[in-house]
């Protein structure tokens, strides 16, 4: 994969990278830094892409891997619920951390 093709592919699929950054970082500057780290890792790994999967799958894998591997303190917004749930099963799904992260992307 040459540089021109790499740039075209990243440009086309940059939405995936932005979404992973929004999931894993809360502050805009941290998201920009993570976007940069992911782009760097994609460039470092582009020679290993063997067309065995879709390009979007490859980008998502590298992005997720980079986001998890880089150490940052993730700050969760504190929300006070008026109702305390006794059992985990009673907790609405929308209160689960991953789901909250997805909703916070809006």
């Amino acid at each position: 994969m040459d540089e021109a093709l790499f740039l075209a592919l990243i440009s086309e699929h940059q939405g995936i990278i932005h979404k992973v950054c929004r999931l894993y970082r809360d502050i805009r500057e941290d998201r920009e830094d993570l976007f940069q780290e992911i782009t760097f890792q994609l460039w470092k790994s582009h020679q290993t892409f063997k067309n065995e999967s879709k390009i979007s799958t490859w980008i998502y894998r590298i992005a997720l891997n980079t986001a998890i591997a880089s150490f940052r303190k993730k700050k969760h917004a504190i929300e006070y619920s008026p109702v305390l749930h006794d059992l985990a099963d009673e907790q609405p799904m929308k209160n689960l951390p991953f789901v909250k992260s997805v909703y916070s992307m809006r």
Binding site: E3, F6, Q14, D33, F35, T39, F40
Partner: peptide
Amino acid sequence: VESPRVSDQEIRDMASEKMHPVL
């Protein structure tokens, strides 16, 4: 969800080790 757009030049710069925020 809408994402910001990054230009090709910015992406090219990001692929450089010099610009890596942590490194």
